[in-house]
Amino acid sequence: MAEDQEREEGQERPSRPSTAAARRERRGAARPAARKDADGKAEPRSKARPDSAAKADSADRKGRPTPTRDRKDDKGSIFARTSRFLREVVSELRKVIWPTRKQLIGYTAVVLVFVTFMVALVAGLDVGLGKGVFWLFG
């Protein structure tokens, strides 16, 4: 419903923020401002609760013990593991902030200039030291 209103106004939210700052801002806006108790009342985050009350409250909501670390997980078949790996790769690549074409050209130019300078420096030192050695030892 909110998306329909935005489209009617002509302002469409971008599907993905283009900068890291915009992503942080978007993530911050999505977080809830307060925690809710079991009875549905909002509790401010800054309110300090005694440890015993917090532990008892979380134990009531959880309802089951935490599994031990020694438990071996079922890895599944090779196809399931490969599929999961590929899904995780794709999800990580979506998090990458890809450079624009202009940035890519700029970065490439900087790298090529730097590499050219370093090759010239090493070649100059090689020729200079070679001539010095031949002059010294004849």
Rank of each mutant, 00 (worst) to 15 (best):
L129S: 10
T100E: 00
T66V: 14
Q11N: 11
S91C: 09
K131S: 08
D74G: 04
K131R: 13
S52K: 12
S77M: 04
R64H: 14
R16K: 13
R23I: 02
A30Q: 13
D73V: 07
R64V: 13
A22F: 01
A33P: 04
K36I: 02
T116G: 15
R84F: 04
V113I: 15
A20H: 10
S52G: 05
P44D: 01
Q103A: 11
G28H: 05
R49E: 08
P50E: 11
D39C: 03
F117N: 08
G130T: 13
T116L: 14
K95C: 09
R27L: 12
R87M: 08
G106Y: 02
A120T: 09
A22D: 12
L125E: 10
D70R: 11
R7I: 09
A34P: 00
K55I: 06
R49Q: 08
T82S: 10
D37N: 13
E88R: 11
R27S: 06
D60N: 06
R84T: 10
F117A: 15
E25Y: 04
W98F: 10
G76S: 05
T100Y: 00
A2P: 02
A42T: 04
K95S: 14
A59E: 12
D4Y: 05
F134D: 12
G63H: 01
V90R: 13
T108I: 06
D39E: 07
D74R: 06
I105C: 01
S58I: 05
A53F: 06
A59S: 07
V133L: 14
G124W: 04
K75I: 05
A34K: 11
G106P: 01
V122C: 09
A123Y: 06
A22R: 04
R45Q: 04
E43S: 07
S91L: 13
P65F: 03
R64K: 15
G28N: 14
R49L: 09
P65Y: 03
D60S: 09
Y107T: 03
F85V: 03
A22T: 01
R61G: 03
A80T: 14
A54P: 03
E12A: 09
T108L: 12
Q11D: 10
S46H: 12
E6M: 12
A21Q: 11
G76I: 00
I97R: 14
K47I: 01
K72M: 05
G28Y: 00
A29S: 11
E8I: 05
T68S: 15
R71D: 06
K47P: 04
D39N: 09
L129D: 04
K47Y: 00
L86D: 09
G130N: 05
V133N: 04
L112A: 14
A59I: 00
F79W: 13
E12I: 14
V113L: 14
I78R: 15
L86Q: 13
A48K: 13
E9G: 07
A38V: 05
P17L: 00
A48L: 10
T66P: 03
G10L: 01
T82N: 12
A80L: 12
I105K: 14
G76R: 02
P17K: 01
K72S: 05
D126W: 15
A80I: 07
T19H: 00
P44H: 01
G76V: 01
T108F: 07
R26N: 08
S52D: 15
L121G: 03
T82Q: 11
M1E: 12
R45S: 03
D74Q: 06
